[in-house]
Amino acid sequence: MRASPSRPQVPRVVVAAVAFALSAGAVWGIAAAVDVRGAFQAAPGAAPTLITPRRPAFYWEEWNGFLAPRARTIDPPRDLAFALVGPPPAQQAEARVTVELVDGSLRPASIVVRPGTTVRFENRDELAHELYGVDYPAIGPEATSPNAARVVTLSDVRIIEIRDRRVPHLRGYIAVTPVAYAGNPAADGTMTITGVAAGSYTLKVLFDGRWVHEQPVEVVEGREATIPPIRIEPPPGAAPAPSTTASAPTPPAAPAPTPPAGGR
């Protein structure tokens, strides 16, 4: 009779040691990521472009004659989006993004997502909305009742304009592009990207449906990266800023930036 060969036994201690080492390395790597901070400044007259209607939007629009009018400006959490293009992070978050429909508008109205990201439109309004992508049949017109949501998955690399058939003035933009990190600024215009791995990146800013700013960002291990304030200029063709001095608007409650896919 032949005796069967015996399987070599790995000591459990060795296995535990390897596992510890891997875990420690991962924790060290995360701990090695740094934050990237910056801010945006809106130039006079910088505001989202109004929709050009087929017919005049009004018969009368005139100043009240008593108090200087307030100029239109940028709402940073709603109108601006930024992205870091570079080495992907070691651990990516789930590719899901939520956009709210509030007070007849999208919040945020500009977002940057990776291809394959699922975007969830939640109607927090009391109006029904019917969003659709302009020249983008993948997002066809579909009614979304109040307190209901609509989910779409975006895979085409492009900038998609979103409109609403029931609220004509509503407009937003979704940039689908391979990025490492993306997000929206705070109400005060500040930007913070946390947990960025060291490496060379390119910072891109989305405003009014186009990339309005692009600059390289070098992230060094163990040192926070600070980006100088970025000035947002008026869109080309926009009306010049009114000469009257606008009083400081009462800022609305700044919503928390929606974390984009792969965001912080």
Binding site: Y59, W60, E62, P69, R70, A71
Partner: peptide, 9 residues
Amino acid sequence: ALSGFLRDD
């Protein structure tokens, strides 16, 4: 209107 203009629509 919140910006100081009279308007119709």
